[in-house]
Amino acid sequence: MPITQDFEYHKPATLAAVIKLLGQYKKPAILAGGTDLIAEIKEGVTAPDALMDIKGLADLKKIEFKNGKLTIGSLVTFSQLIESKLIQSKFPVITEVAKMVASVGIRNRATMVGNICSAVPCMDSGPVLCAYDAVINVKGAKGARKIAIDKWFLGPRKTSLKKGEIVTGISIAIPDKKHAGCYVKLGRYSGEDLAQASVLILAMPNDTDRIAFGSVGPTPIRARNLEKLLNGHKLDEAIISEAKQLILKTVFPITDIRATKEYRMHMCQVMFERGIKAASNRLAGDGPPYGHNQI
């Protein structure tokens, strides 16, 4: 199917050049992996007048860890995240998330930054970044700014990125304490699927947890009410049961072609329970290995 739209293509060599070019078009789009963008252009979902291919910017290809802070550049693909020894050792739950994104041929191209810029509700990267209190690094003609993940997602396909700006990367401060995590994703079968619901748990010592849901609301949901309920309590059946009731007031799934609201709600409870058990067992050193879906 040929692309019928017209657009110009640029491959700037510097970030400054990108920012300059962004100002010269009405509807420019940043092209990194292109797995969302090209499909959307083909189907007419989006119609940019210019594509800025940023793959010439070597600095954005890096995964860095300095002073307790992880930075994932805008060109870092999911495959790079999976293969990174640094991520595997310090942020294994990010490896777990990345492995559940689509399939190899997509992951070799698709980037985590692209995932949160597309900001479709079923994205896999949202919950983990919410749980880690990630910060999005943005640059524009007026300079750089940092956007907390809580303020990043504004709605389906809507972010707080302004016209003329580009995301350069995502920063995550490693929690002070030792931590473990678990990502549970609901698909219609074992193979590649878009999440119908997802939950990400970060478990830390002294019964403190961070919890985020994906695909059960217009944006990812950091479940601070659940965290408040759970934190400081030993994880027993009573508190899990209470938490599962609270989930009903925390997530807002809809019924669509992929699943009903009812099943999504039910699965949020099941996935939360399995996820938090797996995460706390991992923290204790006897959990299931990373990389396997708990459902």
Binding site: S103, R188, Y189, S190, G191, E192, D193, L194, I257, R258
Partner: peptide
């Protein structure tokens, strides 16, 4: 194939 799911090697 995003929403008419046919089996993959994992299924």
């Amino acid at each position: 194939f995003s929403d008419y799911k046919i089996p993959t090697a994992m299924d």
